[in-house]
């Protein structure tokens, strides 16, 4: 939050200003099994992040003007992508190639493997490396989160024209933001990262479902509801 409102584009500044303050993990102490403890801590953090994301989405310019059905569809399709932009952004430059889920929940490869998240670790490090090589800024991360939600390919849409206008507004904001920094090509490069983001989010969703079904990791009702919509 060091560069609050530093964009010349009002939408991008607004997205960054309304970005929730990063959450801290609440360490689970209900079990002696350390890998299960990690998973329970992670799922609790994810659930709270999801709540904040829903609150934040309502503040994305144009989102609240969409029909309630479309708001729900976009969030149900794009929530994991939006949350993973945050994880990848926080994990840039992390020591020992850790994944920074929160300042007090940073998992390295061995910890992820022990928790049954080896696949997810690999996918998220790949995504992080992509953004790291671009030196993704806080403004860009906030804009990308909004774009990921708007572009989540929910189907069918209640009012496709309104969703397209919503997408166009965010696309223009990102273009203008980069143009004002004389970085015209970055908007395109950021959009080209969306397929990798989608792929990573799919793997994360499958990992969560697997943990829930095979290891009986309990999930909060909201998370279950969002997974059910997938």
């Amino acid at each position: 939050h060091a560069s609050l409102g530093s964009s010349r584009n009002k939408v991008v500044s607004h997205l960054l200003l309304t970005e929730p303050v990063p959450l801290a993990a609440n360490q689970d102490d209900s079990t002696n099994d350390s890998s299960l403890r990690t998973l329970l801590t992670l799922c609790d953090l994810l659930n709270r992040e999801l709540l904040l994301l829903i609150g934040w989405a309502k503040q994305i310019p144009g989102f609240s003007g969409l029909s309630l059905v479309d708001q729900m569809s976009l969030l149900q399709s794009g929530w994991m992508e939006a949350l993973l932009v945050g994880v990848a952004w926080r994990s840039q430059g992390a020591s020992r190639e850790e994944l920074v889920f929160a300042s007090n929940l940073q998992l390295d490869e061995a910890e992820c493997r022990a928790a049954g998240l080896a696949d997810l670790y690999e996918a998220l490090r790949h995504l992080t490396a992509r953004y790291e090589s671009m030196k993704l800024s806080a403004e860009e991360a906030a804009a990308l989160k909004a774009v990921a939600l708007a572009n989540s390919d929910a189907d069918p849409l209640d009012c496709p024209d309104a969703v397209h206008r919503f997408q166009d507004g965010l696309h223009e904001a990102l273009q203008e933001h980069e143009a004002s920094r004389r970085e015209q090509r970055r908007a395109g490069r950021l959009l080209m990262s969306l397929p990798l983001l989608r792929q990573t989010a799919d793997r994360a969703v499958h990992a969560l479902l697997r943990l829930h079904r095979q290891r009986r990791v309990p999930l909060h009702k909201l998370l279950l509801e969002m997974l059910d919509a997938k």
Binding site: L51, L52, K58, L75
Partner: peptide, 20 residues
């Protein structure tokens, strides 16, 4: 929609902040 009532409620509740 009935199946996704938590999300529905969170989105409808537009005036008050999302409660944790």
């Amino acid at each position: 929609k009935e199946k996704h009532k938590i999300l529905h409620r969170l989105l409808q509740n537009s005036t008050s902040p999302v409660e944790l």
